[in-house]
Write a protein that binds this DNA or RNA. Structure first.
Lengths: 235, 235
DNA sequence: CAGTGGTCTAGACCACTTT
DNA sequence: AAGTGGTCTAGACCACTGA
């Protein structure tokens, strides 16, 4: 293992260990003691612990005080961690799919009162409707609403790229998980029966100045993309 | 601020800062530099940073390298963080509700093949059906399936307490988020129309030995309990 | 009792933002 | 240039597990 900066040492250690975990290199799932890992990899124990903490958060390992650190087989099943979904194309890729995007519509019009309020805009809004597909099967339907920019936009780009080109760096989403029955139009686009229950994300994206920059709604086909997570008692 | 061990210094610093944040003590949402906090509270900068990291994960603050640390107003709206839900009574309490539990049924019977496989049991299983209410309104409907214990159980207790009394320490859940339309029976129990779409958790709980100990299904009334989360680009 | 992970310290240096 | 958060080190001590 050669060490460089960027990505950080911790991140390098993490991916190094993750790779060794998934190849089943550790006998009986037992991971070496932190001090040993630190010596072997030539980094401090703190760096090792940071990397192990991230792996533990992902569910890849379990740590038991006084006993040791172990591979967590059930946790390795998790493909999409809810909290760090950023691009649906990446999500589909992590599921072993070969994703593609289809822009269903881009409409520019005067912002409705709710959007005006949420996004703090006065003028026009731009609504982009997109479909993410695996092979030819639709998996995710999204609507992104932003303040209409001066120039044109390439709606096929990920929303954070579009915003970046307009000098708004997307920092995080505040999301609500909402159950809905698809209406006829949405169901047709996702190629399922009308009234199919789906999980949706209703969210607002904020930039680095902590100002709202995008209002977003996403609908998922449960049979093709199901979200998993690890739940624990405390932080 | 007096310092004791247990809870950890980091945890004490975190709640101390959280309290100051919610009371709006920091002018313009600007939180003092880490070195200053460390000096004021008499702890190392590492401890301060650990506490700030947790607050950042919860969405309460935002850190900007080179600029400072700031209160994150939108993030303070989050009542129930998805990843660390442990007891539904606590969740309801965090929402300002006064929770109660009603045991709808406890049945002991031979385990079906799927449960045998998931929970790795040979004999009987015990299924507990519970309803969590706010005032008199039902909010959460849960089914917990465990290997039938020798003695009796008080089904009204939280599931982790029941398991603890049988020497199985619940360590974490592996959860799937699944959209469903409630059937007539479930809808009646939650006092909503049949066919109402809801978010459900389908999950398996593991103990500290990483063995499956409980199979669980939960259904939530979206109008009374909606889950929120912060989504970011990476860890 | 030896060995493990958990907590905490003090300090160095870097990357970035702001003035 | 000054000040901030980001990364990393080396080491101390504690709490817990298991032989």
């Amino acid at each position: 293992m050669t060490i460089n900066r960027s990505p950080s040492l911790t991140e390098q250690v993490k991916s190094h260990l993750k790779a060794r975990i998934v190849t089943g290199e550790f006998p009986e799932g037992r991971i070496p003691p932190e001090t040993e890992l630190a010596a072997d990899l030539g980094v401090s124990r703190t760096t090792i612990r940071d990397a192990l903490s991230r792996l533990e958060n992902e569910g890849a390992i379990i740590r038991k005080q006084g006993a040791g650190t172990f591979v967590n087989e059930p946790g390795l099943q998790i493909r999409s961690r809810l909290e760090d979904i950023w691009s649906y194309e990446d999500v589909l890729q992590d599921h072993g799919y070969t994703p593609s995007v289809r822009v269903l519509g881009v409409t520019r019009q005067s912002a409705d009162p709710e959007t005006r309020h949420v996004l703090q805009i006065a003028g026009d809004m731009l609504v982009m409707e997109k479909l993410f597909l695996e092979d030819r099967r639709p998996v995710v339907l999204t609507y992104n609403t932003i303040a209409a920019p001066d120039g044109g936009v390439d709606a096929a780009l990920p929303i954070y790229e579009i915003l970046r080109h307009n000098d708004r760096h997307l920092a995080y989403y505040l999301s609500e998980i909402v159950p809905v029955n698809l209406d006829a139009d949405q169901a047709a686009k996702l190629e399922v029966a009308a009234g199919t229950p789906v999980v949706s994300f209703q969210e607002v994206g904020f930039d680095q100045e902590n100002e709202p920059v995008v209002k977003s709604a996403s609908y998922f086909r449960d049979d093709l993309l199901r979200f998993r997570m690890i739940r624990r008692k405390e932080a």
